[in-house]
Design a protein around this nucleic acid. Structure first.
Lengths: 204, 204, 204, 204
DNA sequence: TAGTAACCGAGACGGTACGTCAAGTCTTGCA
DNA sequence: TGCAAGACTTGACGTACCGTCTCGGTTACTA
């Protein structure tokens, strides 16, 4: 996966790029997000500061690329079993946020990027849309099978899932066990008309 | 409300305390979280830096107290109407996160406090438990009225509500309209057995 | 002597001022002018960089103050002997430039200050006028005694003296022995009308 | 005139050599000595940095060569008139130092080269000896004509001339008018025994 | 006329120092 | 004598150049 935030020429890119991303993750894990300074990453990567600044405009962009590399966003395999597929989707999301670096860095990152719409767009590209599309595919399969209501609000489902998981991880500190995963899946699968239709939403 | 993070002697505290909190909020609104420096607050409050350091151990603690003052956590009045009360609860939560300062600062704050359990506890005190207790009371009234399942997982409901709202505000940027509020309420009120019981969760 | 280039409040000033000037001279002697970096001085003085920047606007100003402290500019005592007094004056000048730091730093400094008239004025204040006034007094005593032509161009004499000495030190590398001193004195004392009158000069 | 400081193979040299020297002078005139960086010269010359480093070991060497090309050191024509010839010599020296680049760069250069005897030698070669020999020839003609004392210290005369001019240009800022030129010439021509003999000096 | 080697442009690289800023601590002077 | 002002050390910021280096590409000389 090519770096999303690097401002470098096209892609493939310079020889020290991956060395730097590795170092960034190392520092992140060892010292935490606030201690992640460009100088620390440069030192850990055995690289000059300017080499980092040549390829990333800011600490935020660098961390975003470093996290993007460990962010799971793969396709949900078609198992023929809607419940199992959704459970897979939720587990993947939990996996992403169970990682300490991800949990503490992502919100800080997002907060820092909010005032920079252009970067925020790239951020959503890297951390939301790719994963969401795959999960949406699984949800659509469930609808086609008749297991889910045909007018399910797919985006809202995902906001609820990811939001609840991240909130627990970050704010309440409540456990992210199998229980939670199951509950989140059942929120969608158990009963009609669990979640409102898109039409209703649009009629707002 | 006495400052939660101030390390000062008992409470009541010195005459410049509220002046400082006001200044902190002013700077936050005017310049945003990254520009909120102790020096800027000191200057805005017409106070020496050391005066701030006397009462708060860090910028995080100061911001936390400043935000806590504008964080809505009042009691939900007993309206005799479960749906209306829950809607009130959700609206209050949306209100809290609609505020730009709150949305960008809270996650950064929480992320920064995660490695400091002691401060994290105080943080949850100020921003979660007070509000949650009031909402929990409303939910319990709904259960007693028979409008909600008797084994509703009250904490999970609140995680879902707050998580979804914060996630939309911070990550996806999706709107926090009346539609969302209504959906979140219906998630609880519409159907048995919408949300699993606590027992199930504990049996995890 | 209060620092001339320090931009600090009045004088007397902060507790680390002289520590810094001492360190600057140490670095100058040990490593030379090009190696004199603010960071090196800060390290040698056991002081933060910003402490230096608080009091001096630039490396040039700092070096100027450091050199000013070792620059001899005392009064020429009235010996009743014109030749001896002038010899004293020339010896003092040679003394100033015999110092390696002074010889290599002063011209570089002056070159660097040429484009900044305001600083150049302060520079001349510190390194020329104080010394020149004392020497001028000696020359005027010589004129009153009848030992020197009454229309001697006092400024030109001093330009010749200092210029020749500095040029030898910096460019040709020729020795600054007693011979040179004596020659420079004799240039003025030996014969009428050795040096032109001021009137002639003004008539230019 | 072949570059004195270039470390290139023999001479004649590569096609971009003069383009680089021209660019160096341009930058020097436009931005001044401190702003003359290798990168700036490379950019101005439309040349890669390494091309400059291939031919000159340092910025100092490059500037020295650039200045050497505009340094006047031609022969003094035999006019049969000692006073006129010396005046020619002094005017030539004034010309050299009246140039702003020369005045500010030469002292800085010389100061920087002082600790490097090998480079200092080459520097004197380029900026002193060539010119001095021509002026010395004029002085010797004056001695042969009987216009100047037979034991005139030729080196001292030149130190006085160049030193005074450079000192005025660099330090005092006093004007370098025709008056000064005339005074400097008269210093030598007016009276015996204006300047001491070499023998006396050597007996020091 | 082609092959080859020196020379060149471009610019990435590991570094050093810049001058600025804010953090958090320590000192001083006033009330 | 206790607090406000602010000088202090520290350390990261992001920038500018340093001098080294690897890349292709282009001259221009040899074979």
């Amino acid at each position: 996966m090519a770096p999303v935030f690097s401002s470098g020429p096209a892609a493939g890119g310079p020889r020290s790029l991956s060395k730097i991303l590795d170092a960034a993750r190392d520092v992140l894990s060892a010292q935490g997000y606030p201690a992640l300074t460009i100088e620390a990453v440069a030192a850990a990567a055995g690289v000059g500061k300017s080499t980092i600044y040549r390829w990333w405009p800011s600490k935020e962009a660098l961390v975003a690329d470093a996290l993007a590399e460990i962010f799971r966003a793969e396709e949900i395999p078609d198992l023929g079993d809607t419940h199992a597929e959704l459970r897979h989707a939720v587990d993947m999301t939990i996996d992403n946020y169970a990682n300490e670096d991800m949990a503490t860095s992502l919100p800080a990152l997002a907060g820092g990027l909010l005032p920079h719409p252009e970067l925020m767009t790239r951020f959503r590209e890297a951390f939301l849309y790719r994963k969401r599309e795959n999960i949406a595919a699984a949800l659509r399969r469930g609808i086609q099978r008749g297991d889910l209501p045909h007018d399910l609000d797919i985006d809202l489902v995902q906001d609820i899932w990811a939001g609840t998981i991240l909130y627990r991880r970050l704010m309440t500190g409540a456990p992210l066990g199998t229980d939670l995963a199951e509950h989140l899946v059942q929120l969608v699968t158990d009963t009609p008309p669990l979640l409102p239709t898109k039409k209703q939403e649009c009629a707002q």
